[in-house]
Design a protein around this nucleic acid. Structure first.
Length: 453
DNA sequence: TCTGGGGTCCTAGGACCC
DNA sequence: TCTGGGGTCCTAGGACCC
């Protein structure tokens, strides 16, 4: 074994980028984050940290601690571009890089064929990487930790910030961890620390003594077993370069609590559209729509609904969102609203094509179409969210389809969610109304935006 | 000093099926 | 008619991370 996992952490990243781009801010306290009434600090420059300003602190408190700091909204596009340049330097060192956020990543040196390294070799590689990061980023510094596992590398990178390198020699890991507080272990937050302290556990050494069964009783099965291993530095989690997206969401905290249902409906609608845009850009679609609401007293509720098939259609997401909001009690007001989509599929739904395009694709014997999973079970011509009409039941929309049947949810005045009925796919009484709705939407767009040039 | 926005993972209960 | 246990899916909430 050798310390072949690196953890790289850019120092005070957002604030450092602002100081890079605006020389007058250099050497001065800079706070990047939400600047509004209910904002929190994302990053404080080291000059601001001297005044006790910390990440996740409310901006109001930061202002009282350090009134003369520069307070700036984040510029994510700039951070993203800088991050990409930095990650490129890491990938030049090894093909196996796992970004954790814009300013952090693991690097697996062994995957680059760098084996048989001494601690000094690893230190030299780390220093070289820091140099190339500085050049590629316009002067940003990074801190690097190196160890035989992610756990050790991650903890090490924090020990000599900013601009430091810490290499933990193989074989010394358990002793390295022993004197530290349990909260250095990623995954041990305030709640877990509280439970552990009730069992007399404060340091990793205390944790190393604790019986696994006792630990599981205190913090649960998954957390307990993993913690029991991490305490003795037993960590075989691999560095993974491409992690799949599991959910896409948008949320907003309001300056003032909102009670007005019509206003919230309009906001939720816009959020549904934003989520849809981001899904489409990422070529994703999902089956579960979740509405998140944070009440005036900070209690948080989620309401979710799962469709029979995945969608990225803004109308479908908005409609489900609206229904979920209708089920939400607004008494006392709402401070945050959010819309998310999960249960993602990485294929795009075929209703993005017109029927004639789909027919053309089928004729051309496109292999991709044949290989698409699950879609085969869905009935051609029907897709979730599609508007339909039935003379006996009125207007409704498709919930899902498959095995020769179409499930329709009818919208009636009496109840949300409304009754669900299933029909044979060739039922002559069931008619599609997709065109009418598309035209309505186009019309609404025109009214809203004015005619195109 | 009242607490962001984007995520991930886990737990627990109920429905439903075999 | 009563009584099972396991597996999977869905929903809600919570802890945690940057």
């Amino acid at each position: 074994m050798e310390p072949s996992v690196l953890h790289v952490d850019l120092d005070a990243f957002f604030a450092a980028v602002e100081q890079r781009d605006k020389p007058s801010l250099r050497g001065k306290p800079v706070v990047v984050g939400g600047i509004g009434l209910r904002g929190v600090v994302s990053t404080a420059s080291y000059e601001a940290r001297k005044y006790g300003v910390r990440s996740a602190m409310s901006t109001a408190e930061a202002r009282s601690r350090c009134p003369h700091a520069a307070y700036l909204w984040p510029r994510f596009e700039v951070y993203r571009a800088t991050s990409q340049a930095v990650m490129a330097e890491m990938r030049a060192l090894s093909p196996l890089v796992e970004p954790l956020s814009l300013d952090e990543a693991f690097i697996d040196l062994a995957a680059a064929g760098l084996t048989g390294l001494t601690d000094d070799d690893v230190r030299a590689i780390s220093e070289d990487l820091k140099d190339s990061i500085r050049k590629a980023s316009g002067g940003l510094t990074a801190s690097v930790g190196a160890g035989t596992s992610k756990l050790i590398a991650k903890i090490a990178s924090d020990l000599d910030k900013p601009d430091g390198v810490v290499v933990v020699p193989a074989g010394t890991e358990a002793d390295f961890l022993a004197p530290m507080q349990v909260t250095v272990i990623p995954g041990v937050g305030p709640a877990t620390a509280q439970r552990l302290s009730m069992a007399g556990v404060r340091t990793v050494a205390d944790l190393q003594q604790l019986d696994e069964d006792e630990l599981v009783r205190q913090v649960g099965s998954a957390h307990g077993t993993s913690l029991h291993r991490l305490a003795v530095a037993a960590d075989d989690r691999p560095v993974v370069s491409d992690r799949e997206t599991k959910s896409v969401s948008v949320e907003d905290t309001f300056e003032i609590d909102i009670i007005d249902r019509a206003l919230l409906t309009a906001i939720a609608d816009r959020m549904a559209h934003r989520v849809s845009e981001r899904l489409q850009k990422a070529q994703l679609s999902g089956r579960t729509v979740t509405l998140k609401s944070r009440m005036h007293d900070f209690t948080t509720h989620t309401r979710s609904s799962t469709l029979a098939g995945p969608t990225d259609d803004p109308r479908v997401i908005a409609r489900v969102t609206r229904r979920l909001l209708d089920d939400t009690d607004l008494a006392g007001g709402i401070r945050l609203l959010g819309v998310g989509v999960s249960s993602l599929a990485d294929w795009i739904q075929d209703d993005l094509f017109t029927e004639s395009e789909a027919a053309e694709a089928a004729e051309a014997e496109v292999v991709d179409v044949i290989e698409m999973p699950d879609r085969s079970r869905e009935q051609p011509g029907y897709h979730p969210g599609q508007d339909v009409h039935h003379p006996d039941h009125g207007l409704g929309w498709v919930w899902g389809s498959g095995r020769g049947r179409v499930t329709v949810r009818f919208e009636t005045a009496e109840t949300p969610p409304g009754p669900v009925r299933t029909f044979a796919v060739d039922d002559p009484l069931l008619t599609k109304r997709a065109t009418a709705v598309a035209e309505e939407d186009a019309e609404a767009e025109t009214r809203h935006n004015g005619p195109n040039e």
